[in-house]
Design a protein around this nucleic acid. Structure first.
Lengths: 208, 208
DNA sequence: GTGCATTTTTGCAGTCCCTGCAATTATTGC
DNA sequence: GCAATAATTGCAGGGACTGCAAAAATGCAC
């Protein structure tokens, strides 16, 4: 972790502008819908020229989703899963996800609105899923490590089983988050975690 | 299953035109890259006007992916899952997927090139995920119907459990298909089906 | 502060994707 | 052949996005 170097005025302005664009994008899309919001509108509210918009983001969708620094997150998740205290794989995966993403989801107006938009617009969801694709394989690798350490009998194809296991848990978390948003994003994070766990268990029950 | 009604000239031409567009799209993108291929080029090679292109496909990406009318597929899947002979939910989902998609996966030059393109261009992958998202919710609804009919004790949240169950099965099928392609797409479909079932079982075992 | 190098912002022209509309052409059932 | 229906097409236009070069802002010496 390199400590923050002192930012000059230039960099501070750049960060602030970026945030202004993200905020404007989320607000306008919330109000006007995904197709109703134009880059011109967003730029105007963010107080920049339309051309500058594309200096900050490659596409309208990217601005709405904001920027994810996935490298950091990936390392954290891998470490979290592999070093989980429990022997329960589901708990290891789900709790790690909440430990990593929970703090990021600290309720700012921006993040909450953004999550709602992702639920609402499939186009955004698929783009986000795509961003998360790399993350899934990282998680799968961590799960393999988890299994190698704890399970006396490994499944025949640890890697593939791990991928499916991750898919299952991620789906549960996604649903729990969706419910959380639908309920107004008021409940605390812990209850969302418990909900995701419960859903997974019920599903496993139903499938076996 | 309604037996094939005799197709008139009109319908035959439509099917043929659609195929011509898909082929032209894949060929040109293969040659020129995703951004180098324009709708105008594709239309010219397919011998239609650019405007007609958009009568067949919503977007350039859809033409490359060869998006079938998902409505048809969705109805088939819903019917397949709901009317499965088995009481095993996993078998119902996985076997329905293979029954619907198996025949579509017959190996052609077109399909092989298409799969390569999807690997190569993240944007196409993103779009494909989008298509699958719609399909997933249809399947989830069918699973709810399945559960309502067969299970004496329904889970507390049938819809959500169904979504997670579908995610799990779809992930298994995806892996089985990936293996199949990696192995040169030579083995028969049935072995792929058995593989997907086996993977799911192993995963459920590991998770519980 | 002043001057100079670097970075950022901006306008502009242009390409491409995609849509609605209305005219034209092709197929179908009679 | 003739009307009904469906497919194709051209056209006008909006919106996303890019390259380029001018203009403004910033950083850094002095």
């Amino acid at each position: 972790m390199p400590d923050t170097p002192p930012l000059g005025l230039r960099d501070r302005k750049r960060i602030e502008t970026r945030l202004r664009i993200e905020t404007a994008a989320v607000e306008i899309v919330t109000a006007e819908g995904l197709d109703g919001a134009t880059v011109d509108m967003i730029s105007e509210r963010a107080d920049i020229s339309p051309r500058t918009f594309f200096n900050y983001f490659e596409s309208k969708e990217d601005a709405i989703l904001g920027t994810q620094d996935m490298g950091e997150v990936q390392r954290a998740i891998a470490a979290g899963v592999a070093s989980a205290e429990t022997d329960d794989l589901v708990a290891a995966i789900v709790s790690t996800m909440f430990h990593i993403f929970g703090p990021m989801a600290a309720r700012t107006q921006l993040k909450t609105q953004r999550m709602a938009l992702v639920q609402e617009h499939p186009r955004l969801l698929s783009r986000q899923i795509h961003q998360f694709t790399q993350l899934n394989s990282t998680m799968a690798a961590a799960v393999v490590e988890f299994l190698t350490k704890r399970e006396s009998t490994l499944p025949r194809d640890p890697e593939h089983v791990a991928e499916i296991a991750v898919a299952t848990c991620v789906a549960s978390v996604r649903i729990a988050v969706k419910e959380w948003i639908a309920a107004g994003a008021t409940a605390d994070i812990d209850s969302m975690y418990l909900r995701a766990m419960g859903l997974t268990r019920e599903t496993l029950n139903t499938l076996t």
